[in-house]
Design a protein around this nucleic acid. Structure first.
Lengths: 180, 180
DNA sequence: TTGCACATGTAAACTGTTACATGATTGG
DNA sequence: CCAATCATGTAACAGTTTACATGTGCAA
């Protein structure tokens, strides 16, 4: 079974209820899904072009003067494809690599101090991540965003990040103790 | 900054204290690091060849009759490279994609039942994962393995998997409730 | 006037997987 | 005798990132 490109679904999803430019799209991905989904320029712009060719998107030029601005809008065919993807079970074969855990796994070959340094760095990263998730949690619970129709789902993904960070922090602390 | 290939470190680490064939190497990866590190044939065999060219490994032929068998052994240069990697802080830019969370994030566009189905499948997968981690935990705590010098580190990575599964299970349950 | 955000895009390099290709040995 | 495991390897392809390339508009 061939692996299929999922950038298309991130794009279709972002465009589902409002037209955006490639740049705006990229920003959305950067500050709303960054902790579980990333895209770069070089994946977004070509994919927008491809989706347009497939008639999953339309585009219109909103350039003002010399300032370029191309806005993309989802078509019914695009919505249909997106919804079909949503309804499919997730791709089982998705697996992740963690260089950090690989180092821990081979820890017997390192001096204790090296491992402690790795674990403490991880601890700092996790504390920072937890703080960020808390902030995001606050932002989406207040003001205009609290009643946004997507808010409950954003909240679920934020809670995922929060819980993961908390559990990994516990693990790091426990592992630091075990090592000493 | 260029991304660097980390398959080499997985290989060097596995060969650090015993020579192995490519096939054995692959099996080790498959049943000891599979939950945080994977390799396929097509990454291992070419990398073994490359590492040999770089003099990080040596090989000798142990074929018996027609049965091929090429055993690779790490050199001092290989050990040195591996230890230098271990001591380096982990690559910050490592990020993961989760198709599952991407679907949840866009959940507002799906019917409730579709989301429940996704969450329940995830729940089943996590229960299976937790069971597997428990089994691995038992295996490495008993018999000859309990005193293996690497055991404490294996144990730390298993506890990582166990804790993560537990925390994600809590999250799934909570999310299923929230959705109803 | 300088830096930042806006804005779009390509080329090259690299990573990694799937599918393909081939065959031997061992145990039930 | 047949299935599983041992054993090694390549070709083609898909995915993804980094670096490159170029320029505008605005605000301090």
């Amino acid at each position: 079974m061939k692996k299929i490109n999922k950038t298309r679904y991130a794009i279709l999803g972002m465009l589902f209820d409002e037209p955006l430019t490639g740049y705006e799209l990229r920003k959305r991905v950067l500050d709303s899904t960054a902790h579980f989904w990333q895209e770069s320029d070089a994946s977004i712009y070509p994919m927008l072009k491809k989706l347009k060719q497939e008639k999953k998107l339309t585009s219109h030029d909103e350039s003002t003067g010399k300032r370029k601005r191309i806005v993309f809008e989802i078509t019914n065919a695009g919505k249909k494809e997106f919804l079909a993807w949503l309804a499919k079970p997730v791709d089982e074969r998705e697996h992740h690599r963690s260089e950090f855990l690989l180092k821990i796994f081979f820890g017997a070959h390192a001096h204790k101090n090296i491992l402690l340094k790795l674990l403490k760095q991880q601890q700092l990263d996790l504390l920072a991540a937890r703080k960020r998730f808390k902030e995001i949690g606050h932002i989406i619970s207040h003001k205009n965003l609290a009643t946004h129709p997507h808010q409950p789902f954003w909240n679920i993904t934020v809670r995922f990040g929060l819980k993961r960070a908390a559990s990994e922090l516990e693990w790091v602390n426990e592992s630091i103790q075990a090592l000493k």
